[in-house]
Computed example of a mutant assay.
Amino acid sequence: MKKVFGLLTAVGLMTAPLAHASTVTVSGSTSVAHVMEVLAENYQNTTNTNVEVQSTGSSAGIRAAKDGTSMIGMSSRNVKESELNSSTKEIVIARDGIAAAVNKANPVKNLTQEQISKIYRGEIKNWKEVGGEARPIVVVTRENGSGTRGAFEEIMKLQRTINGHKVTAISPTAQVGNGNGMIKTIVANNPYAIGYISLGSVDDSLRAIDVNGIAATEKNIVAGDYQIARPFIVLMDKQAPKNANDFINYILSKDGQSIVAAEGYIPVQ
């Protein structure tokens, strides 16, 4: 099903609500899309309702929900009031941690939030400064507009204000990867790289390091001990079609939330 979703284009999605009113269109955060595609597939199998999911990034998903080019938008960061209008509603469907991930060959097992921030600011440049090998750190970040990047910057205090506007404090020398998948590939193939990805996307190709001595686990996020965490949000118009509301109700149901848990995220129900 993911291959089918991957064939969708932004232009096609913009016309989908008009051309196929019976189809539920969903677009936005690549992190939320990871679980949304599974939810959509299961929902289609049980209801015979077509659901199309496209990974376009949180900012694009928020805009799509606001201007009506998508029935449902997805965001993996908090939404600013300026990005909404009076008819847009937000619904939290799950919670997720953001894992600071390194290559499995990297001996560093733990970093403080301050150390991670300094690495991303370019103030710590070599692994030997944090207990690793005497090799330069390859810093990997997400693209602009990524909800994961927005949440990571906010939590890790990686923003600065210039002329009244918030801008990133991440070093301009950092490599940029579009989506969790690309970040994983870069880190998994470079023993000196560090990146950040959705906790639900962590697999055996890399390793999530402890932060402030706390492991990145669901238990620690629920307890409030692991601090790098964010909500998974969907946005839709208050007058959205019934089929879109029915899909959201399914996501929030016992069956939908069991899928959220099975995919490695934290249910909200």
Rank of each mutant, 00 (worst) to 15 (best):
S75V: 03
D67T: 05
E37L: 09
I209T: 06
E133R: 13
K109H: 14
Q115M: 00
V92H: 06
E41L: 06
K254D: 15
S87V: 06
A193M: 11
S31A: 15
Q175S: 10
G147R: 01
D255M: 06
A21N: 03
K254H: 10
M182Q: 12
A193R: 07
S82L: 08
A240H: 02
Y196P: 00
F247Q: 01
T173I: 09
P107M: 12
I194S: 11
R207V: 12
I228S: 03
K157S: 04
K219R: 11
I72G: 00
A40L: 11
V38C: 02
E153C: 07
S31L: 08
A65K: 10
D204V: 04
W127S: 00
V130W: 06
G200T: 06
A151M: 04
K184H: 03
A60M: 12
N50I: 00
S55Y: 13
V108R: 03
S31V: 08
T47N: 01
T148S: 11
G61S: 10
Q54S: 14
N110I: 12
A19G: 05
L39P: 09
Y226P: 15
P267S: 07
E90N: 06
A223V: 05
G122H: 09
S253N: 11
A105D: 15
L252W: 00
H165A: 09
N45C: 02
I266F: 07
Y226C: 15
E263Y: 08
M71Y: 10
S58V: 11
A262H: 13
I186G: 04
R149K: 15
N163F: 05
T47G: 00
T185C: 02
D203F: 07
A262D: 15
S70P: 01
L199C: 05
L7Y: 15
I137T: 02
G28K: 13
T9V: 11
I183G: 04
S198V: 13
I170N: 08
P241R: 13
A193F: 04
Q257D: 10
K2T: 14
E81L: 13
R135K: 15
P231K: 07
I137R: 01
K118G: 02
A21M: 03
G131Y: 12
L84V: 09
A188Y: 01
G68I: 10
L7Q: 10
I119Y: 15
A229F: 04
E114Y: 03
S55C: 04
E123K: 07
V24I: 11
A193E: 11
I62Q: 12
N85G: 01
V268H: 04
K157L: 04
I162Q: 08
I119R: 06
M14N: 12
A16C: 09
K3G: 08
T15R: 12
T141W: 03
H165N: 06
M236K: 02
N178Q: 10
G122I: 08
P136T: 11
G97W: 13
V260K: 07
A64Q: 10
A65I: 09
E52G: 00
L111G: 12
A99Q: 04
V140D: 01
P267I: 10
I183M: 14
A188H: 03
T148W: 00
N50R: 01
T148A: 08
G150R: 03
N163L: 14
L13E: 14
M236P: 00
M182K: 14
A134H: 09
G181W: 07
A262I: 07
S117L: 04
N180Q: 09
T141H: 03
R160Q: 12
A229P: 02
V140W: 13
G57L: 07
